[in-house]
Computed example of a mutant assay.
Amino acid sequence: MIVRKNMGRAKSLLMLLIVLGFSFATYNLVSMIIDHNKNEGLVADESFGGRKVIGSAKFGSKYHVALTATDAAYSQWQCRIMYYWYKKVRDMPGSDMGKFTRILHSGRADQLMSEIPTFVADPLPEGLDRGYIVLNRPWAFVQWLEKADIEEEYILMAEPDHIFVNPLPNLASRTQPAGFPFFYIKPAENEKIIRKFYPEEKGPVTDVDPIGNSPVIIQKSLMEEIAPSWVNISLRMKDDPETDKAFGWVLEMYAYAVASALHGVKHILRKDFMLQPPWDLHVGKKFIIHYTYGCDYNLKGELTYGKIGEWRFDKRSHLTSPPPKNLSLPPPGVPESVVRLVKMVNEATANIPEWDTLNRI
């Protein structure tokens, strides 16, 4: 059954949080929002019931796959492919995957509710995201963590443009989450800005890991501590013109890294967590394909990045409707990672029901 109640007071309290200046005392305000709205929201998944796991981590602990998304067609078709491959690899040897939730932060149900286990979170109050829609992600996590019955002790934070290419074990340790080091997240090179949110008395700027929130495998109890701070830091960064200009589309990633450091959390940095075609040429033993970059090649198999190729695959070519079935394979000479990506997309689209019609604007 789907239930939804008014979150007006939650939004008012969140606005108060902003007015008060986003100090870390605002953790209590976020807690007040959650306490008031506990068990409210929109849930569509019969499998959410079950016990909450409490205790120390152990090798082989299951993790819950949490995918944040919107109800736009562009997000929907990526979610469908991602969920298809989750189901394919979930029970393979070496996998520690548990259950799956799409955290939909559009504030309303969509047509994928019966296909993908989904929790519907309220977005930020109108205007707060300033057109930067991923600012809703940390606030959605705060709501989900408080309201959903999550059986697993760990959580994998994932995104729609992730494809599981190999069975993914729990890469976290008892004391540290696991994250992927992004080459473009550079806290040390942005120390002046980082110090606005991570003051010197907290420690060296190298305490801030070069990561975003995804992919990250983290103990649920630790994520419950970090998430409210992640909300606060994200909004503070967006409200600061210098920070907003410097960090741009990766602002929310920096906010997660800073929030983690403020809680004394260091991540195990796993380069094998993910590969990103066309820059990573081989899949090997890596676990996730992240297809955020366009793949453009001429018919000789040469990369033409920055120029539309004679052959291309770019998710942004499909903003308003899903890509067609049976995409053409890359020409000879294109790296194995790109070939594998297109083959996996083709397999998913060939097997997902109503692929051509369900998620169109």
Rank of each mutant, 00 (worst) to 15 (best):
280 D>G: 04
283 V>P: 00
333 G>M: 05
242 E>I: 04
288 I>M: 14
342 V>Y: 02
246 A>M: 10
334 V>S: 06
334 V>P: 08
319 L>G: 00
311 W>R: 04
224 E>H: 07
225 E>Q: 12
336 E>A: 11
280 D>Q: 04
230 W>N: 12
280 D>S: 08
239 D>T: 05
350 A>H: 13
288 I>F: 10
351 N>F: 05
303 L>Y: 14
286 K>M: 15
341 L>C: 00
236 R>T: 07
263 H>T: 04
323 P>H: 04
302 E>V: 01
293 Y>L: 15
299 L>N: 12
292 T>Y: 11
355 W>L: 00
310 E>L: 15
242 E>F: 04
308 I>Y: 11
232 N>H: 05
275 L>I: 15
323 P>W: 00
229 S>A: 12
245 K>H: 13
347 E>C: 13
271 K>E: 13
279 W>L: 06
271 K>P: 12
275 L>F: 13
241 P>K: 09
319 L>W: 15
299 L>W: 04
317 S>I: 09
288 I>H: 03
296 D>Q: 14
249 W>N: 11
316 R>C: 06
347 E>H: 07
338 V>Y: 08
302 E>Y: 03
346 N>F: 00
283 V>S: 02
328 S>I: 07
323 P>R: 01
323 P>C: 04
236 R>P: 00
253 M>T: 08
226 I>N: 10
230 W>M: 12
356 D>C: 05
228 P>L: 12
277 P>N: 04
346 N>T: 10
317 S>P: 00
242 E>A: 01
319 L>R: 00
292 T>R: 09
352 I>F: 08
324 P>E: 06
264 G>P: 10
230 W>Q: 11
324 P>A: 02
259 A>L: 02
351 N>I: 13
231 V>D: 04
256 Y>T: 01
236 R>Y: 02
348 A>R: 07
235 L>Y: 05
309 G>W: 03
275 L>M: 07
237 M>E: 06
271 K>M: 06
302 E>A: 13
279 W>I: 09
359 N>H: 12
358 L>W: 15
320 T>M: 09
329 L>C: 03
320 T>C: 11
328 S>W: 00
341 L>P: 05
259 A>H: 01
274 M>I: 14
331 P>I: 06
231 V>Q: 01
250 V>D: 08
313 F>N: 02
246 A>N: 06
256 Y>E: 12
267 H>E: 09
358 L>R: 15
329 L>R: 08
328 S>V: 07
325 K>L: 13
337 S>W: 09
295 C>W: 01
225 E>H: 13
340 R>G: 03
322 P>W: 07
263 H>E: 04
295 C>A: 13
243 T>H: 06
352 I>G: 11
288 I>W: 05
281 L>F: 08
344 M>P: 06
228 P>N: 09
342 V>M: 10
318 H>E: 10
305 Y>W: 15
280 D>V: 10
236 R>F: 04
280 D>N: 12
274 M>T: 13
282 H>S: 11
267 H>M: 13
323 P>N: 05
252 E>V: 14
335 P>F: 04
273 F>M: 15
296 D>G: 05
284 G>V: 13
257 A>S: 12
309 G>C: 10
253 M>H: 08
267 H>F: 05
340 R>I: 00
252 E>S: 05
348 A>T: 03
277 P>L: 09
352 I>T: 08
